[in-house]
């Protein structure tokens, strides 16, 4: 029994293991309610939903670890998808081939994201606007412009090949989905094993100490907001591939999903804490809940309630861990059972 208690303790102290258990429990629950859930088609759908969310959530992870917040990622998804759609429509009208058009579209989308990120970076590091306000401004401007540019409707007329790219090819993963997985892994190494991540943790943990140690904190902050914008631009492109058009509503509410994924993944909004693996699982849990509730025929609005409960649980767990009592709490639970 003490063995079990120890194992429970180490799991409580390990957010990733706990998240994995939650995820497995969810899959088991949804499957028991409707066996259709456990199928390649559903998993493919979950992964397709997950891919753009994890992109913006990873950017949000970097930002939140640094002690900031990026509210603009959702509207950046919309504006970059729309701008890329206009460029691809125009290229297609001028008779350019679909491969070439899709490549240009990708870079246009990422460049649009980088532009929004650079505006955030400028506001935060040069004019000293707090991240919440700076990114609230770009969030409003971005989603407003996306609607103005499009008149509210989707922008199609791009290469037809786009939508085929989003079909699952390797298990539940499409090729762009696989590329996103690879990118997330690379970014994970930079966050956890390299100087870039080390300094971001240091800035979020104690900015004065980081500056005193000679770290150019503003340059690093600028880089992460630009990174966050670039990833949102990629997510915008991903939605374009999935829908075959650029819609001003793509990414709507994406910032809240990203923040939820990061918090469920164990990061602290006060900075200095968080892991890529947590965010990856947090985003996976979010998208699994969404698909699962639909499949077992629960009204879609329940999703928000479930997500709220997950966030509350994650925050409580974090509080407990900060006090060093999460393992105590759990071992007490086990004692009572004996």
């Amino acid at each position: 029994m003490s063995n079990l208690v120890n194992r429970a303790k180490s799991i409580a102290g390990n957010q990733q293991a706990l998240l994995l258990l939650v995820l497995i429990a969810m899959i088991a629950f949804f499957t028991s309610r409707n066996s259709i859930f456990f199928s390649n088609a559903v998993f493919g759908n979950i992964i397709s939903d997950w891919a753009p969310i994890v992109l913006i959530a990873i950017g949000e992870t970097f930002v939140i670890i640094s002690g900031g917040i990026d509210l603009s990622v959702g509207s950046t998804v919309a504006i970059s998808g729309v701008v890329a759609a206009f460029s691809m429509r125009s290229l297609t009208e001028h008779g350019h081939g679909s491969t070439q058009t899709l490549i240009v579209g990708f870079f246009v989308s990422v460049a649009t994201g980088i532009l929004v990120g650079a505006i955030n970076a400028f506001l935060i590091t040069k004019t000293n606007v707090v991240p919440f306000i700076a990114t609230l401004v770009t969030m409003g401007a971005g989603s407003g412009l996306a609607i103005v540019f499009t008149g509210g409707g989707p922008i199609g007329g791009g290469p037809d090949a786009a939508i085929q790219l989003s079909v699952p090819k390797v298990g539940p993963f499409s090729y762009p989905g696989l590329a996103i997985v690879a990118l997330v892994i690379v970014l994970g190494f930079f966050l956890h094993k390299a100087r870039f991540g080390r300094y971001i943790y240091a800035i979020g943990s104690n900015e004065f100490a980081a500056r005193a140690a000679g770290i150019n904190t503003k340059a690093y902050l600028a880089k992460i907001y630009i990174l966050s914008g670039a990833l949102a631009g990629m997510a915008g492109y991903y939605y374009y591939l999935r829908l075959g058009c650029g819609a001003p509503t793509s990414g709507l509410g994406g910032e809240l999903q990203a923040i939820a994924a990061v918090v469920i993944g164990g990061a602290a909004l006060s900075g200095g804490e968080g892991r890529i693996s947590g965010t990856v699982l947090g985003a996976l849990i979010l998208t699994t809940v969404t698909s699962g509730l639909i499949i077992i025929n629960v009204a879609a609005n329940w999703k928000q309630v479930v997500v709220a409960i997950l966030i509350a649980a994650a925050v409580l767990l974090q509080e407990a861990r900060a006090k060093g009592s999460s393992s105590k709490l759990l071992s007490n639970l086990f004692k009572k059972k004996n």
Binding site: R198, Y201, A202, G204, S205, N206, F208, A209, A210, A212, A213, G214, I215, G271, G272, E273
Partner: peptide, 20 residues
Amino acid sequence: YQDSGLAPHLSVSANVFLGR
């Protein structure tokens, strides 16, 4: 510094080597 110059979320060695 009087108001500690350590980053509490980092390890001891990460703090010792911060910036170096």
